[in-house]
Design a binder for these strands. Structure first.
Length: 215
DNA sequence: GAACGGATCTGCT
DNA sequence: GCAGATCCGTTCG
């Protein structure tokens, strides 16, 4: 894990939906002087620009969302519901808005540290939501704008041993508009996905896969 | 300077 | 499965 290659700039500077799918299975690493925690990304959501009413960038550029218009591969961290931080990776070239919300990870290294941060012991609910994983990894507004392609405080690396899994799509969680867009990506059946991921019947599975091809 | 509302969470049923 | 807490940052006047 520690020797794995950090995802380069061109991984992020392309179509946002492609990045949302490609980030599944990669390893998010949070590094401190005293501790390192990491986890495999199992759930993401894509957010666009003026074509996406659910996106912060829908109404143009403001001081808050300016990172969405930056080059790809930076951390866009924002605060919601008066209590939670959400971590995104910026996408597309400079000037084109786009970001991928990292919604859930499967805990790997540093689990004791993350459990302490959350104040719980259960591994399955440790990082299965955007607000939960940022709290577990101590990610907040201080990391807004951090370069994810540099091996510093926060970055994402390749997987050494890819698992056998199936990526499926669905509507994004917690948004009231743009629900017709199946821009959520997650690993089918993975227990660390935030919600709505019970094992599915054959018929329903086929339907989900169809959606993922449609993009 | 104040009103608004949200890319969530927890707990209860 | 759902309702309500919660409360800060953004935005507008």
């Amino acid at each position: 894990m520690a020797s794995s290659k950090v995802l380069p700039r061109d991984f992020y500077e392309r179509n946002t939906l492609s990045v949302a799918t490609a980030l599944i299975g990669k390893i998010l690493v949070r590094k401190f002087v005293t501790a390192t925690s990491s986890g495999m990304i199992v759930e993401t959501e894509a957010y666009g620009g003026k074509d996406d009413p659910a996106s912060h960038a829908f109404r143009g550029r403001t001081p808050r969302n300016s990172l969405m218009f930056s080059r790809g591969g930076l951390a866009y961290v924002y605060f919601v519901y008066g209590a939670n931080w959400c971590l995104n990776a910026t996408t597309e070239a400079a000037g084109v808005p786009g970001a991928v919300l990292i919604r859930a990870i499967e805990p790997l290294t540093g689990q004791a540290y993350m459990k302490r941060n959350r104040g719980i012991e259960d591994r399955f609910t440790l990082t299965n939501g955007p607000g939960k994983l940022t709290r577990a990894m101590w990610i907040d507004g201080d990391l807004n704008g951090v370069d994810l392609t540099k091996r510093e405080s926060l970055f994402i690396v390749e997987t050494d041993e890819p698992e056998d899994y199936k990526i499926v799509s669905g509507p994004r969680i917690g948004v009231s508009v743009g629900q017709h867009l199946p821009w959520r990506r997650y690993i089918l059946g993975n227990r660390f996905v935030s919600r709505g991921n019970r094992r599915l019947s054959v018929g329903k599975r086929a339907k989900l896969n169809e959606m993922s091809h449609k993009d």
